[in-house]
Design a binder for these strands. Structure first.
Length: 565
RNA sequence: UACCCCUUAGUGUAAUGGUAACAUAACAGAUUCUGACUCUGUUGUUCAAGGUUCGAGUCCUUGAGGGGUAGCCA
């Protein structure tokens, strides 16, 4: 799937408008430098894709005076792991973006950040607080009442310097002291009520090891890291809106910063039938509701990749949903539309029967096998053709036969006629059942005069065309039929505060069938995209497929224009 | 009952004081050796009330509704 990662959208969103104005005004000499700053504490999901497409997209759109950094915001060693660092890089690359040499870690700035903190202390803008976390919380006030100053708020710079140095040296226990910015305990913005900027954490960091026993807080590290990297536009989601004054306070009060970035916020992605919280996603994995972070039902990048979504489709989706400050809920359907749109252009067509019914063509010469030439992809003739065996014993899909048909059913019925695509028409003469009454076989006759799409004159029109697989040549293949993970559009909302979203897990989110596929798929390479004609799009599972023995994941079903009335 | 942000077809977005539109969804029809794709058409939209203006989705006021915020998480 090859379309280039995105030109600018036709009309500018509020962020792009702002940036265009900055460029026009030659702010930062016309440079646009953005960053995607994940904390390596989990796997990236489709919501992150929105941010990735924005930040890296901006860099592409504003070339050559633009770039986008990948920065790991690794300021909390208790939650972070290299496993996540690796997966995040893989996911960003898969989406089609490239950070070049601009891979950074907040932890690389620890020494500089420490120096800035010393500077703030010297300026009388930060102090060491000995209050317990409980006391701090109590004295912070509430949403409707101001906070109370800490008894330690007016320590001298000298004392603060000494204490902060000893915090770094590891002299104090975790939780016993914290460095706070001295701002305004009465601010209506809770973030400005002397926020903690350093805490004591005697934890092993995945990059700095045991070198530090204090770690900067996000609110402190982020703006300063942005400034150190020369970021011009720091874009984040809406819940950081209240952090903006603090961001600006730090940029204004720390001297010697090489850049003057500013922060703007946009609404995060919400998708129907989808959970986007890392914590809840973790629960699904940990409690075994899904099979790992890359389970094709997961909204993680690794999950949707394994499901068979394409980078082009995801990028196009991100462009389509736009960028606003309205906390919208996007229909999953739109994502699926983008996936089908891309796959329709590129997926190779094959015949596959998910729920086989045996069809015996009684007047077809016994033992005869012929080969029909089928188009691999009608959307792209260059994909060529293939030969598919046809014989007197076939499988068709159970969905394509109804013993007592409903209104509008165009496929095979007792005594009725249907076309086998690119073969001939058959008439169902007899339905054979076992003792339990299950259909085990359909006995049919074919009409040689109906080959090549011919409709003999004077015969009732055959409305249905169905796919088929030759029984003797069919491959038995494991196919995983994925459906939406939840039965509710908004599982969290539906569960309420006290409830548990897992009660809305869709029991039908995964069905594994042994399908009958045409023999050509024996050579299917892991990680390739297929359309099973009339059924859906399928992806060769990259983990579980073996040479000659592919396993397929259903990416998304084809739209079904047939609605039973 | 504090502060901040937001509100345009069912959903997601555009319209930058001058004809309310695009995508998707739904529904019709055409086409089709995929009930897909493609094509055509239909339904349906500015939260409310005032104000400014020749003219308001857009600016102002008030109200309503929604989201966010009280980690030594990010």
């Amino acid at each position: 799937m090859s379309d280039a990662p995105a030109a600018a959208p036709a009309s500018l969103d509020f962020i792009r408008e702002m940036i265009a104005a900055d460029v026009a005004a030659q702010r930062n000499d016309g440079w646009v430098i953005t960053r995607f700053p994940p904390e390596p504490n989990g796997y990236l999901h489709i919501g992150h894709a929105k941010s990735i497409c924005l930040n890296f997209g901006l860099s592409l759109e504003n070339a050559p005076k633009a770039r986008c950094h990948l920065r790991f915001d690794d300021t909390n060693p208790t939650k972070e792991e290299v496993e996540y660092v690796d997966s995040i890089q893989e996911d960003v690359k898969w989406l089609g973006f490239d950070w070049g040499d601009h891979l950074f870690y907040a932890s690389d700035y620890f020494e500089k950040l420490y120096g800035f903190a010393v500077q703030l202390i010297e300026k009388g803008l930060a102090y060491v607080d000995d209050q317990t976390p409980e006391e701090m919380r109590a004295n912070r006030g509430t949403l409707t009442s101001p906070g109370t100053a800490s008894p330690f708020r007016d320590r001298s710079a000298a004392e603060n310097l000494d204490l902060f140095a000893r915090m770094r040296a590891g002299e104090f226990a975790e939780g016993s002291k914290v460095l706070r910015a001295k701002i305004d305990m009465a601010s209506p913005n809770m973030n400005m009520r002397d926020p903690a900027i350093y805490r004591i954490l005697k934890a092993h960091h995945h990059r700095t090891g045991d070198a530090w026993s204090i770690y900067p807080m996000y609110d402190y590290a982020h703006p300063l890291s942005d400034a150190l990297e020369g970021i011009t536009h720091s874009l984040c989601t809406l819940e950081f809106e209240h952090h903006r004054p603090l961001y600006e306070w730090l940029i204004a009060n720390v001297s010697g910063l090489p850049g003057q970035p500013y922060q703007r916020e946009f609404a995060r992605l919400n998708l129907t039938y989808t959970l986007m919280s890392k914590r809840k996603l973790l629960r699904l994995v940990k409690e075994g509701f899904v099979n790992g972070w890359d389970d094709p039902r997961m909204p993680t990048i690794s999950g949707i990749r394994r499901r068979g979504y394409t980078p082009t489709a995801v990028r196009h989706f991100c462009k389509t949903i736009g960028l606003t400050k309205y906390p919208s809920l996007t229909e999953l359907n739109l994502l699926e539309h983008c996936v089908r749109e891309d796959l329709n252009k590129h997926a190779q067509r094959v015949y596959g029967v998910l729920r086989p019914i045996k069809v015996v063509i009684t007047n077809y010469p016994a033992g005869q096998v012929e080969h029909v030439e089928l188009t691999n992809n009608p959307e792209n003739e260059a994909d060529g053709k293939r030969l598919v065996p046809l014989s007197g014993e076939l499988y068709i899909d159970a969905d394509d036969f109804m013993e007592t048909p409903v209104q509008g059913f165009h496929r095979l019925v007792p005594g009725g006629e249907v076309r086998l695509k690119y073969a001939f028409c058959i008439i169902c003469q007899e339905v054979i059942k076992d003792e339990a009454g299950n259909i085990v076989e359909l006995r049919c006759t074919y009409d040689d005069a109906t080959r090549h799409g011919v409709k003999p004159v004077g015969r009732p029109k055959v409305k249905g065309t169905i796919h088929w697989v030759s029984a003797a040549h069919a491959l038995d293949v494991e196919v995983r039929l994925y459906d939406k993970l939840f039965t509710e559009e908004q599982p969290e909302e539906a569960a309420g505060d006290a409830g548990d979203f897992t009660q809305f897990l869709n029991p039908q989110s995964l069905e594994v069938v042994t399908a009958k596929l045409e023999p050509s798929v024996a050579e299917a390479k892991p990680g390739s995209y297929y359309q099973f004609e009339r059924v859906g799009y399928f992806y060769t599972d990259p983990k579980d497929s073996q040479p000659g023995k592919p396993v397929f994941n259903r990416t998304v079903a084809l739209k079904d224009g047939f609605v039973k009335k």
